[in-house]
Measured scan of single mutants.
Amino acid sequence: DETGKFLVLSLYDYQEKSPREVTMKKGDILTLLNSTNKDWWKVEVNGRQGFVPAAYVKFL
Rank of each mutant, 00 (worst) to 15 (best):
M24N: 01
W41G: 00
G4C: 15
P53K: 04
Y14D: 02
D39I: 13
N34L: 08
A54D: 01
V8S: 02
E16Q: 13
E16V: 06
L60H: 09
S18C: 10
W41V: 08
N37R: 08
R20W: 15
L33C: 08
K38A: 12
T36V: 10
L60I: 14
W40R: 02
G27A: 01
V45W: 06
V45R: 11
V22P: 01
P19D: 13
L11E: 04
D28S: 07
N34T: 07
G4M: 12
T23W: 04
E44D: 09
P19Q: 10
L32P: 00
V43P: 00
K25D: 03
L9R: 08
S18T: 12
T23V: 04
Y14Q: 01
L30T: 01
Q49A: 11
K38P: 13
F51I: 06
D13V: 03
K58G: 13
K25R: 12
S18E: 09
R20D: 14
T36L: 09
V8P: 00
M24G: 00
A55P: 08
V45E: 01
E21A: 06
M24E: 00
V22D: 00
Q49E: 12
R20V: 12
F59W: 09
R48P: 02
R48H: 08
V52P: 00
D39G: 09
L60A: 07
E2R: 11
T23N: 06
E2F: 11
E16H: 08
S18N: 13
V43Q: 00
R48L: 07
Q15P: 08
K38S: 12
L7H: 10
V45Y: 09
A55C: 14
V52I: 10
L32F: 05
E2S: 14
T3F: 13
K25S: 09
L32S: 01
Q15N: 13
F6L: 14
K26T: 06
V52K: 01
W40H: 02
G4E: 12
Q15L: 12
F6P: 13
Y12F: 13
L9W: 06
F6R: 15
Y56D: 03
Y56Q: 06
V52S: 01
F51K: 02
N46C: 09
D13T: 05
G4Y: 12
W41Y: 10
G47F: 04
D13K: 02
L11I: 11
P53E: 03
T31S: 08
K17W: 03
G27Q: 01
L30D: 01
L32E: 00
S35P: 08
D28T: 07
D13Q: 03
L7S: 07
P53N: 03
N37W: 06
A55L: 10
L7P: 04
L32N: 00
A54P: 03
G50H: 01
Y12D: 07
V45S: 11
L33Q: 03
L7R: 09
A55T: 12
L9I: 15
F6H: 13
V57E: 00
I29N: 02
K26A: 13
V57Y: 02
T36N: 12
W40K: 01
K58V: 15
V43Y: 00
S10P: 03
L60Q: 07
V22E: 01
V52Y: 01
L9D: 00
E2N: 14
K26R: 11
Q49F: 07
K25M: 09
V52N: 00
V8Y: 09
W40S: 02
Y12E: 11
Q49L: 07
N34Y: 06
Y56S: 11
V45T: 11
N46Y: 08
G4T: 13
N37P: 03
V43K: 00
M24L: 09
T36S: 15
S18P: 03
K25F: 10
W40D: 01
Q49S: 11
V52D: 00
R20P: 05
G47L: 04
Y12N: 10
I29Y: 06
S35D: 11
Y12T: 10
T23A: 07
N37H: 11
R48Y: 06
D13A: 06
K38L: 09
P53Y: 03
G27P: 00
N34S: 13
L33W: 04
Y12W: 10
T23Y: 05
I29C: 08
G50W: 03
I29W: 05
K17T: 12
K38E: 10
L30Y: 08
E16G: 15
R48M: 08
K42G: 05
G47W: 02
T3G: 13
A54Y: 02
W40Q: 02
T3C: 15
S18L: 08
G50K: 01
E2T: 14
T23C: 07
W41Q: 00
G27T: 01
E21P: 04
V43L: 02
K26Y: 05
W41T: 03
P19G: 09
L33K: 04
K42L: 15
V57K: 00
T3Q: 14
L7V: 09
P19H: 10
G50N: 01
K5P: 14
V52H: 01
F51G: 00
F59G: 06
D13Y: 05
D28R: 03
T23P: 06
D1H: 15
G27R: 02
Q15W: 11
K58T: 15
F51V: 07
V57D: 01
F6M: 14
S35F: 11
G47V: 02
S10N: 03
M24P: 00
G27V: 01
P53L: 05
W41L: 07
K5G: 11
S35K: 11
K17M: 11
Y12A: 13
L7K: 12
E16A: 15
I29S: 04
T36Q: 13
P53V: 04
D13E: 06
N37E: 10
L32H: 01
I29R: 05
D28P: 01
T31N: 09
I29D: 00
K42T: 06
E21C: 08
A54Q: 05
L33F: 03
T3M: 13
V8K: 01
T3W: 12
S10E: 01
M24S: 00
F51Q: 02
L30Q: 01
W40M: 06
K42A: 08
D13M: 03
R48E: 06
S35C: 15
A55Y: 09
P53C: 06
N46T: 05
K58E: 14
K25G: 04
K25L: 08
W40A: 01
D28G: 03
S10G: 09
N37V: 05
L11D: 03
L9M: 13
V43E: 00
N34G: 07
K5Y: 12
L32K: 00
